[in-house]
Simulated scan of single mutants.
Amino acid sequence: MTITQLWVYPIKSIRGCSVDSAMLTREGFYLDRRFMLLKDHEQTPQKLENMHVTRFPNMCLFHTSIQENTLTITYRSPGSTPAQAETLDIPLDPENFEHLETVDVNMHGSPTTAYNMGSKYNSFFTKHFGHKVILAFWGFNPRPVLGNLPGRPADQPKSQNAITKVLTSLPIIGPLLEDDNDKIAFNDCAPYLVISESSVADVSTRLPSDISMDLTKFRSNIVLKTSEQAYSEDYWSELSFSNDAKILLTGNCGRCASLNVDYETGKNGTGRDGEVLKLLQKDRRVDPGMKYSPIFGRYGFVGKGGEGRVARVGDEVWVSGRNEERTRFYWPGLST
């Protein structure tokens, strides 16, 4: 197989950046999901709401680009010209962020502490959303993974016996035994999401003949060209890259109404291309762990030794492991 597209999403749920190369880290591609937007309901005590494109479809009107260490956000309102677009530059490695106000973020029951980037950045998003918004920086405070992990059964929580607890406390042996994949940033359930062009093409066949599925709505990190039939990735358990890295695929991605969002208007889609979720529900509800959601794509984690390696568009990839049956998605509070 061949990598045809690589994507990073510096701010969760707004448009991503197509890149030619990306460095693998434990938490995902370098620069992926560093920030997220929070709606401030201006209550006492403070109530913050995680912003996702399903709930706030106009998030898709914010475009992103990366130049060196700066993220540029461009807001394009429906029907506007490029000259009318407004931009905001955000440092991808904010200085002295430890001194910023902290905010609590809880995603799917998995908590972390983030940092409020301040009024210079918040006012830009507040203006365009029409309500108070906080731009939160991850700050390298990882969230625990509560669901599918490499080598762990779908419904088995992480546990240690007495001997393992003692060994992991030792300064030399401990790091060798620790699970490197049990933390993520602002990703939903895993650091990586892999899809295939074959599966995207199948979705296009379900739409009117003059419409092709916009694969950016799947918000994948890695897009692969493969000779295998559509949805073969349901059974992939491991991918090997030409740079000797591996991605361990552990769970299926259950899809939501974000697939129906109209990226031109920033509204929930209607009509010919606004029923993608319904079209997939006919035959893609194949995971009993997400029995009400159609499955598209696989969640994954970088294998040991792969952190720091670089994936590039055009690189070859091999399926180095397969499951005899589909895995079952598990995440407390999300899975069925």
Score class of each variant (00 low, 15 high):
Phe218Trp: 14
Glu86His: 02
Thr113Tyr: 04
Met1Glu: 14
Phe329Leu: 11
Pro45Leu: 14
Leu24His: 01
Ile66Met: 10
Leu92Arg: 01
Thr226Met: 12
Ile247Leu: 15
Gly303Asp: 06
Gly305Gln: 09
Ser293Pro: 11
Leu224Gln: 10
Pro111Glu: 04
Arg285Pro: 11
Asp89Cys: 10
Arg322Trp: 14
Pro91Val: 02
Ala154Pro: 10
Lys132Tyr: 04
Asp104Tyr: 12
Gly289Cys: 15
Asp273Gln: 10
Lys127Ala: 05
Arg15Ser: 13
Met59Pro: 04
Asn187Ile: 09
His63Phe: 10
Asn58Gly: 09
Leu92Phe: 02
Pro153Met: 02
Gln156Trp: 06
Ile14Gln: 06
Ser320Lys: 10
Leu239Cys: 08
Trp236Thr: 09
Ser198Cys: 07
Thr216Pro: 06
Ile3Asp: 14
Ser237Asn: 03
Gly79Val: 07
Gly139Cys: 02
Glu233Asn: 03
Asp179Glu: 09
Ser77Asp: 09
Met117Asp: 00
Arg152Pro: 07
Met290Asp: 13
Arg322Phe: 14
Thr4Ser: 15
Glu178Phe: 12
Met1Thr: 13
Leu167Pro: 06
His99Val: 09
Tyr292Cys: 08
Leu92Lys: 00
Phe129Cys: 02
Phe301Asn: 12
Thr54Val: 13
Lys217Arg: 13
Arg26Ile: 11
Pro171Met: 05
His63Arg: 13
Ser240Gln: 10
Pro144Phe: 01
Gly308Ser: 07
Pro153Glu: 01
Arg76Pro: 10
Ile173Phe: 03
Leu239Gln: 07
Phe97Val: 04
Thr226Arg: 08
Asn122Thr: 00
Ile134His: 03
Gly147Gln: 05
Gly139Pro: 01
Lys282Glu: 13
